[in-house]
């Protein structure tokens, strides 16, 4: 863990400093969404004018029922899906429809993303999966498999596995791991390059309550230790209330409230699940 606090060699941008990403002012938001709208084909708006600003170091839970638009918002913020209207600015990169290839490369170098179903490659080792997490860092084919990786990358991957408590399973095939262990490997893959920002889409939804709680605690610890900004979606009120600084509630693609977690109780949150 302590080693991860040091600047990772993987953080070094092979293309040198990115001129398009100047250091933001202390008070400027790290992520901002301005009237973001998203429609799939001719269907109704999945996101309907979402405006949001997230500052450095915040832990933000996007809360809502199934279909509220939280996963779509998370993907739209990082440019994984194109938006239909509005604008997003993240890590100094502003885009309307979707980020350009250069913006996308800059973003991928500085953020980590964890999916609900972890998305590990089952037939390769946990270590190889974590090494794959550095693919956006300019290692080329050497990030395809742990056996090809340079020593610094392999060390960083082992360190990331240690940070999630799975260093002893580094050589285990990913399809032999439990759901909770798989999600930990996915988290290690997301942090191997030392990102400023960590996104997670329903990270605990596919796990049993105990494993889900462990994963949420791990996220909170990793975010706090590294002063990372953490944005995650959840439909579990307790995961939002206990692990986030701030809760943004969505309903039918709109932000229905945005408040500090300490100011809210389960009773305040219940209306967002009502039809």
């Amino acid at each position: 863990m302590t080693a991860l606090l040091k600047p990772s060699p993987l953080n070094a941008d092979p293309a040198g400093p990115t001129p398009a990403a100047p250091a933001p002012a202390a008070a400027a938001p790290l992520i901002s969404a301005e009237s973001v709208t998203k429609r799939f084909a001719d269907g109704p708006a999945v996101l309907d004018g979402v405006t949001l600003a997230i500052r450095r170091g915040e832990r933000v839970a996007l809360l809502g029922a199934n279909g509220a638009g939280k996963s779509t918002l998370l993907r739209a913020l990082v440019g994984l899906i194109p938006i239909t209207g509005g604008a997003v600015e993240i890590l100094g990169q502003r885009f309307t429809r979707q980020p350009t290839a250069r913006q996308r490369a800059t973003l991928r170098r500085r953020l980590g993303f964890v999916f609900q179903f972890h998305g590990l490659v089952g037939r390769t080792s946990a270590l190889s999966n974590v090494v794959n997490g550095a693919m956006g860092q300019g290692h080329g084919w050497r990030s395809w498999h742990q056996s090809l990786a340079p020593a610094a990358l392999r060390d960083a991957a082992l360190e990331a596995l240690e940070a999630v408590g799975l260093a002893d399973r580094a050589t285990a095939r990913a399809d032999t791991l439990s759901g909770g262990q798989s999600q930990r490997v996915a988290i290690a893959r997301a942090i191997v390059h030392g990102p400023d920002l960590l996104f997670a889409d329903e990270p605990a939804a596919s796990l049993d309550p105990a494993a889900g709680l462990d994963i949420m605690r791990l996220f909170t610890r990793l975010a706090a230790d590294q002063a990372r900004t953490l944005v995650y979606t959840t439909h579990d009120m307790r995961h939002a209330l206990e692990h986030a600084d701030r809760i943004v509630a969505l309903k039918a693609g709109r932000v229905v409230f945005d408040a500090a977690a300490t100011d809210l109780s389960e009773r305040d949150l219940e209306p967002i699940y009502r039809g």
């Binding site: 994984l80 490369a105 993303f113 490659v121 794959n132 693919m135 956006g136």
Partner: peptide, 25 residues
């Protein structure tokens, strides 16, 4: 498709996705 999407999210190119997510599967 989930491993492919996960690697796309970390900045993998199409050849990276082929080599690391598709071929092993």
């Amino acid at each position: 498709k989930r491993p492919r999407e996960a690697l796309e999210a970390v900045g993998a190119r199409k050849l990276d996705i082929l080599a690391s997510a598709v071929v092993p599967q």
